Deep mutational scan, measured.
Amino acid sequence: MAEQVALSRTQVCGILREELFQGDAFHQSDTHIFIIMGASGDLAKKKIYPTIWWLFRDGLLPENTFIVGYARSRLTVADIRKQSEPFFKATPEEKLKLEDFFARNSYVAGQYDDAASYQRLNSHMNALHLGSQANRLFYLALPPTVYEAVTKNIHESCMSQIGWNRIIVEKPFGRDLQSSDRLSNHISSLFREDQIYRIDHYLGKEMVQNLMVLRFANRIFGPIWNRDNIACVILTFKEPFGTEGRGGYFDEFGIIRDVMQNHLLQMLCLVAMEKPASTNSDDVRDEKVKVLKCISEVQANNVVLGQYVGNPDGEGEATKGYLDDPTVPRGSTTATFAAVVLYVENERWDGVPFILRCGKALNERKAEVRLQFHDVAGDIFHQQCKRNELVIRVQPNEAVYTKMMTKKPGMFFNPEESELDLTYGNRYKNVKLPDAYERLILDVFCGSQMHFVRSDELREAWRIFTPLLHQIELEKPKPIPYIYGSRGPTEADELMKRVGFQYEGTYKWVNP
C-alpha cells in the first residue's frame, strides 16, 4: 500500500466541504435556525453545542446559521458558553472563530407547556436576519415526558411559513410498544414523516454505516452471507464503567431499553437485511423493517440478565456495585447486563442465532459485530482449526478484520490463527472521521433520513421486546451478580454456547 501524504486539518475539512456542497440537498446560502429545546441540560452542553461548534469551526454548516437555545432556566448566552465550552476542545488559535460562533447564538427562556412562551420564541426567531423565511431545525434534547406539549406548541407557534421545518427526537422513544405508539401517533398528527428525525446516534458511527458497503459492494461476501456458512452472529456493546452516581436515570430504563432495543437491534438489521433497491432512505429502511418483521418476540429462556457488584480487589469506582450508587433505588432489580438470542425467521437466516450482548462495568470498552462461520467440513488438521470470524469493530479503534487459519512457519503443516486486517487509523491517516452527532446533524440539514429511525421500524423493535420488558417488570427477577471489570455473568457464556457459538479464547485482536 502506497504511503499517504499527511494533510493538514484545513485540507481534510476542505475535502469534506467539497463532498457536502456538491450535493443538491445542502442549501449552503439559505438562512437556517437550529433550535435546541432543553438548552440547559446535560445532553445540550456535552453533545449538541459542542457538535454545532465543530461543524461551524470546520465550515460545514450553511453560511447563515443561527443557534437558539430554549429552556425553562433563566440563562444568558454567557451562561450557555460557560457550561458548554469546556466540552468544545477549542484551541487558543480558534479564539476569534469561537467569538464568531457565540455571536450567532441567542437564548430564550420559557415554559414547555405555555403557548405564550412559544409565541415569544417565534418572535425572537423572526427578528433574526431573514428569520421569518429561514429553515428551522428543532432538536428535542428533553425528557420524553414533555415531548407531547413541546411538539404541539412548536407546531402551533414556531413553524417557518416559507422555509422547511424538521424536528429531531432523542431516544428513548417511549418505554414499550404502547407508549411508543402513543408518542408516534401524537407526533405524526403534527408533522409529516419526512419532517421527523428520530435519532439513534449509533447509526451515525462510521463502521455501522460501513456495514452496507461491506455487504453490498464486495462480491466475495454475497455468496457466504447466509445460514449455510454463518453459524452465529454476535452483536456486542461493552462499557468498562458503571453508573457513577447517575444511576437514578438509568434505573428508569435499564440496559435493554438503553442499548439493546435500539443500538444493537439497528446493527442487527444492517447485518441481516436484503440488498435495498438503492441507497435512498426509504429503500434502506424498507429492508430493515422486513428483517424486524421476521423476528419473533424474545423468549425468556433465551435471556440472561445481570447486575454488577463491587470488586473487592478493585480501586475507586470498581469497588462499588450498582446498588451502592446513592441515586439507585434500594434493592433495585434493574439489569445492567443483558444477553438475548433472537432468530430472523426467513430463508437466508433460518436457524442462525443472533446474540445481542450489552452491559456496564465490564472488562473493556468495545462495540462490534462478529460473524462466526461454520467449521470446515472434512477436517484434515486433527481438530487444530478454529472457526473463521469476520469482525466489524465499531469502537474504539474502528477496524474490519477476518480471523482465519494460516500455516505456522516451519517444517510442518501446523495451522495457527491469524488475521486479515483493515484498521482505519492506519489505512486512512488523512481522513477526519466525523463524530456520530456531527454526521447525523449534517444529515438533518441535508434532509437525508437514511440513518434515522422510521415509525414502522420503531414499532417493530418495541413489538419484539415489550413482552419481555413487561414480564421483567411484573416478576422482578433478581439479576445474576457479576463482578465489576469482569466479562459479565458466566451464564451468558453458557447461553451463547448452547445456541452454537464457540468461544476459543486463544486469539485476541490487537490494534496495530
Rank of each mutant, 00 (worst) to 15 (best):
L7E: 15
S8C: 06
R9Y: 15
R9M: 15
Q11K: 15
Q11D: 15
G14R: 15
I15Q: 08
L16F: 15
L16K: 15
R17N: 15
E19Y: 15
L20W: 06
L20S: 07
Q22G: 08
A25C: 15
F26K: 14
H27T: 07
H27E: 15
Q28E: 07
S29Y: 15
S29V: 07
T31I: 09
H32C: 08
I33H: 08
I33S: 06
I33G: 03
F34Q: 05
I35H: 02
I36R: 03
G38V: 05
D42A: 01
L43Q: 03
L43K: 01
A44T: 05
K45V: 07
K45H: 12
K45Q: 10
K45L: 06
K46G: 01
K46F: 03
K47W: 06
K47Y: 10
I48K: 04
I48C: 04
P50R: 11
T51L: 02
W53L: 00
W53I: 03
W53T: 02
W53R: 02
W54V: 08
L55K: 00
L55V: 02
F56T: 05
F56R: 02
F56M: 06
R57K: 13
R57I: 05
D58I: 09
G59F: 05
L61R: 01
P62D: 05
P62A: 08
P62T: 07
E63M: 13
N64A: 07
T65R: 04
T65M: 10
T65A: 09
I67E: 03
I67C: 08
G69V: 02
G69F: 02
Y70H: 09
Y70M: 12
Y70Q: 07
A71H: 02
R72T: 00
T76D: 13
V77C: 12
D79T: 10
D79F: 06
D79C: 07
I80Y: 05
K82E: 10
S84F: 08
S84P: 03
E85A: 13
E85L: 10
E85T: 12
F87H: 13
F88I: 13
F88L: 14
A90L: 09
A90Y: 09
T91P: 09
E93I: 10
E94H: 11
K95H: 13
L96D: 12
L96C: 14
L96K: 06
K97F: 07
K97S: 08
L98D: 00
D100E: 11
F102R: 06
F102D: 03
R104I: 13
R104Y: 09
Y107E: 02
Y107V: 07
V108W: 07
A109L: 09
G110I: 01
G110P: 04
Y112N: 02
D113G: 09
D114P: 07
D114I: 11
A115S: 12
A116Y: 15
S117T: 09
S117W: 10
Q119L: 11
Q119E: 14
R120M: 12
R120V: 13
L121E: 01
L121V: 09
S123C: 15
S123R: 15
S123A: 14
S123Q: 15
H124A: 13
N126W: 07
N126H: 15
A127F: 11
L128C: 09
H129Q: 13
H129K: 15
L130W: 14
L130K: 15
L130V: 15
L130A: 14
G131S: 14
S132Q: 15
Q133D: 12
L137Y: 09
F138K: 03
F138A: 03
Y139G: 03
Y139A: 06
L142A: 04
P143T: 04
A149Y: 14
A149M: 15
T151R: 00
T151N: 08
I154F: 08
H155K: 14
S157D: 15
C158D: 10
C158V: 13
C158Q: 07
M159S: 14
M159D: 09
M159G: 08
S160M: 10
Q161Y: 15
I162Q: 13
G163V: 05
W164D: 07
R166L: 01
I167R: 02
I167N: 03
I168E: 04
V169D: 01
E170T: 05
K171N: 01
P172R: 01
P172I: 00
F173C: 06
G174I: 03
L177A: 12
S180R: 04
D181H: 06
L183P: 04
S184F: 10
S184A: 11
S184E: 01
S184Q: 12
H186E: 12
H186P: 04
H186L: 06
I187G: 00
I187P: 04
S188Y: 05
S189W: 07
S189G: 14
S189L: 11
S189I: 07
L190A: 09
L190N: 09
F191D: 03
R192Y: 13
R192A: 12
E193N: 01
E193Y: 01
E193F: 03
D194A: 11
D194V: 08
Q195M: 10
Q195N: 08
I196K: 03
Y197F: 13
R198L: 00
R198C: 02
R198W: 04
D200V: 04
Y202R: 00
L203G: 03
L203E: 00
G204Q: 01
K205E: 05
K205C: 02
K205A: 01
E206W: 07
V208N: 11
Q209N: 09
Q209L: 04
Q209D: 05
N210A: 09
M212E: 02
M212Q: 03
V213N: 05
V213S: 10
V213E: 03
L214V: 12
R215Y: 03
A217T: 11
A217I: 01
A217L: 00
N218L: 01
R219G: 12
I220T: 05
I220H: 04
F221A: 07
G222P: 15
G222D: 15
P223T: 10
I224Q: 10
W225F: 11
N226R: 06
N226W: 05
N229L: 04
N229G: 06
I230F: 06
A231Q: 12
A231N: 09
A231C: 08
A231W: 00
C232S: 15
C232G: 13
I234P: 02
I234Q: 15
I234E: 14
T236I: 05
T236H: 06
K238F: 02
E239Y: 00
E239W: 04
P240F: 09
P240M: 08
P240H: 10
G242E: 05
T243R: 00
E244K: 12
E244M: 15
E244C: 15
E244F: 14
G245M: 10
G245R: 08
R246V: 03
G248I: 00
G248D: 00
Y249D: 05
Y249S: 04
F250D: 03
F250L: 01
D251C: 03
D251H: 04
E252T: 13
G254I: 03
G254V: 01
I255Y: 02
